[in-house]
Design a protein around this nucleic acid. Structure first.
Length: 434
RNA sequence: CGGGGUGUAGCUCAGUAUGGUUAGAGUACCUGGUUUGGGACCAGGGGGCCGAAGGUUCGAGUCCUUUCACCCCGACCA
């Protein structure tokens, strides 16, 4: 992509209501912009990052044997009446009417729909287990959307549902998904913890959350200093007000707090703040029973499916990456999430030697299928650097004043170091880096 | 849902207590020039139904009523 032809509206100023770094930088860097409360446009760079994360999620799930489908975003209210969630989920569900005045719901999640899809199609234990997922738009009518992509109303979520003939098999899949989720978040370059969690509105027995550690996180979790056990504090205290009291404290305030509870292994807990990016539940027959979804077991007897459900907040992950990876100047994308790996910056495009080299490197890198953008705009050096830092390209090749000595610089966004490289060695150096 | 706040240029905001020529600044944008290693400078220029509707008035960005949107605190909720 040529920067001169791209649509990347960056700006010096953030919206006045953006408090979090991810919100400010994603808007300033031209990744997203707000369309309404909790509603966001994805501009080209935001769309690229979103697709990258989607692909990683898809790749790892497919490797683990999950199968992708797609359900409608608009679902008939009758689906929700059957399970009782039309009442229990309340105003979170946005209801709409069609021209015949029939009631519909914009999907906040899809347990019912997926059970209906599998019901009477998967009929035998021989066809189990099966794990179906989709990566699709969800809508939850949050009372107070805020923090940019972290608490939007419309968002992109991966939701998966597995169906089993036995409890043991369900638990096996649960563990497989825990391992798969760990692979996904590791690939994304995130520092995260898996913690015991409450099952909340979805219901069911066992449940684990995946939290990206960030001081701005809305959840308070405790992690053991010795083993890898962790828990959302919601699971530790009975008393709601006590949970609230902890949640309201900042990360800094929590560091001075001590907790009487000890870990099963004997270790002490410490507090962390987390952004929930994944949640997996053992459901059992909660939905299959209420929706009367059954299969035939070895004896030909009808049994309700045993289910588990698995969610990943895909659009929330974009913001999570930045909450965890930024500095005062902007975004620092990880290698797997950067909108372009290489930014070729021609300091002065009027200098034909500089722009010729830029064009040459651009052509060579594209020939090697490297994700590259050529900054061929008329701006000055300082402007282009600030812009590159704000957007957060992993590496920037600076073609500038050192070219007269046959050298260019490679700027590493993460370390913010510039290394001089001989023009003849740039390509090999870059290929080593990525 | 309760309480509060804000809507004026693409963005960030003055102007509204006390109504009075043609509605402002910074930034962004366009033109020309000077610059060319950290969001540069000079000159010129375009851009507004002052959120919407109604009302009061000779006259409304400013006063009144209604309404919509967005934001903040709380409640609720992943």
């Amino acid at each position: 992509m040529r920067r001169s032809k791209a649509f990347i509206p960056t700006s010096k100023e953030a919206p006045s209501d953006a408090i979090l770094a991810s919100h400010q930088f994603l808007v300033r860097g031209g990744f997203i912009n707000q369309q309404g409360a909790g509603l966001y446009n994805y501009l080209p760079l935001g769309k690229i990052v979103l697709e990258k994360i989607k692909n990683i999620v898809k790749e790892e799930l497919d490797k683990a044997g999950c199968i992708e489908v797609q359900l409608p975003f608009v679902t008939p209210i009758s689906l929700w009446d059957k399970s009782g969630r039309a009442d229990t989920m309340g105003k979170e569900m946005l209801r709409v009417q069609d021209r015949h005045d029939k009631d519909f719901v914009l999907s906040p999640t899809n347990e019912e729909a997926m059970v209906e899809l599998v019901k009477n199609r998967v009929k035998s234990y021989k066809n189990l287990p099966i794990n179906l997922y989709q990566i699709n738009t969800k809508f939850r009518d949050e009372a107070r959307p805020r923090y940019g992509l972290l608490r939007a109303r419309e968002f992109l979520m991966k939701d998966g549902y597995s169906f089993h003939a036995s409890l043991e098999d369900m638990q096996r899949e649960f563990e497989l998904m825990e391992a798969t989720y760990k692979k996904i978040f590791t690939r994304l370059g995130l520092d995260f913890r898996v913690v015991d969690a409450d099952s909340g509105a979805i219901g069911g027995s066992g449940s684990k959350e995946f939290h990206v550690l960030a001081n701005s996180g809305e959840d308070t979790i405790i992690v053991c200093n010795v083993c890898d056990y962790g828990a959302n504090i919601e699971t530790i205290f009975e008393d709601e007000s006590k949970i609230e009291a902890y949640n309201e404290k900042s990360y800094e305030q929590l560091q001075s707090q001590t907790l009487d509870v000890k870990c099963k292994c004997g270790g002490d807990f410490s507090f962390k703040k987390g952004i929930e990016v994944g949640h997996i539940f053992e459901l059992g027959d909660k939905y299959s029973a209420s929706l009367d979804a059954k299969f035939s077991d070895e004896n030909g007897k009808p049994q309700a499916f045993l289910m588990a459900t698995f969610g990943i907040g895909v659009s929330r992950l974009i913001a999570s990456v930045i909450e965890q990876n930024h500095d005062d100047n902007g975004c620092i994308w990880t290698k797997e999430t950067t909108p372009y790996l290489i930014n070729i910056m021609v300091s002065n495009i009027k200098d034909s030697e500089q722009s010729d080299l830029g064009e040459k490197l651009y052509t060579q890198l594209r020939a090697k299928n490297v994700e590259v953008i050529l900054d061929d705009t008329k701006e000055r050096f300082g402007f282009k650097m600030k812009d590159a830092e704000l957007i957060g390209f992993a590496y920037t090749i600076i073609i500038g004043k050192e070219l007269v000595n046959g050298e260019v610089q490679i700027y590493d966004r993460k370390t913010t170091e510039k290394v001089s490289v001989n023009v003849d060695d740039v390509m090999s150096k870059i290929m080593d880096l990525i």
